[in-house]
Simulated scan of single mutants.
Amino acid sequence: MADFTFEQDTQIFRDRDALTEDYTPNTLVGRDDELEEFHAALQPVINDENPSNIFLYGKSGVGKTAATRYLLTQLQDDVQEVTGVSVTVVEVNCDGLNTSYQTAIEIVNQLRPHEDQIASTGYPQSKVYQYLWEELDACDGTVLIVLDEVDHLNDDSILYQLTRARDNGNISDVNLGIIGISNDLTFRENLSSKVRSSLCERVVSFSAYDARQLRQVLKQREEVAFYDDTLSEDVIPLCAAHGARESGDARRALDLLLMAGDLARKNHDEMIREEHVNRGKEEIEKEIIAEGISDLSEHARVLLRTLMNMTTENATPARTQEIIPIYRKICEETGKDPVSVRSIRDNLAALSQLGITSRNEVNKGRSGGKFAKHELVYEVETVRSALASIED
Rank of each mutant, 00 (worst) to 15 (best):
I326P: 01
L159C: 07
T306C: 05
K281W: 07
K59Y: 07
E189C: 01
V150I: 15
K373H: 08
V235C: 06
F13W: 09
K64W: 04
I326K: 12
L153Y: 07
R305L: 09
R164I: 02
G335L: 03
V85C: 08
L191N: 11
N360M: 09
H39S: 13
N363H: 13
R188Q: 06
N47R: 05
I284E: 01
R384M: 10
R112H: 07
Y378L: 10
I46T: 14
Q216S: 14
D234S: 14
N168D: 15
P237G: 09
Q110M: 11
G180E: 02
D249F: 04
N26C: 07
A208K: 07
L254K: 04
L75Y: 07
N50G: 03
G84T: 14
V89I: 15
R212A: 15
S205A: 10
E282P: 07
R252Y: 12
D15R: 12
R265G: 09
G61C: 06
K64Y: 07
E313W: 10
S343H: 08
T312D: 10
L238S: 14
Y70C: 10
S52N: 14
E285C: 08
I323K: 00
T142P: 07
V203Y: 10
W133L: 04
K194C: 06
L304D: 02
S205Y: 15
D255Q: 15
V383H: 00
S52A: 11
V62W: 04
G61T: 13
Q125L: 11
E381N: 11
Q130L: 03
I118W: 01
K219H: 12
R202M: 10
F187R: 02
K336R: 15
D148V: 11
Q76S: 11
S367N: 10
L97Q: 09
E287F: 00
R164K: 13
D22Y: 02
D249N: 14
R16C: 01
V380G: 06
A350V: 09
I236N: 01
S247P: 00
G63D: 02
L354P: 04
R345T: 11
L304W: 02
F6Y: 07
R112F: 01
Q216Y: 09
S192N: 12
L254Y: 01
E91G: 05
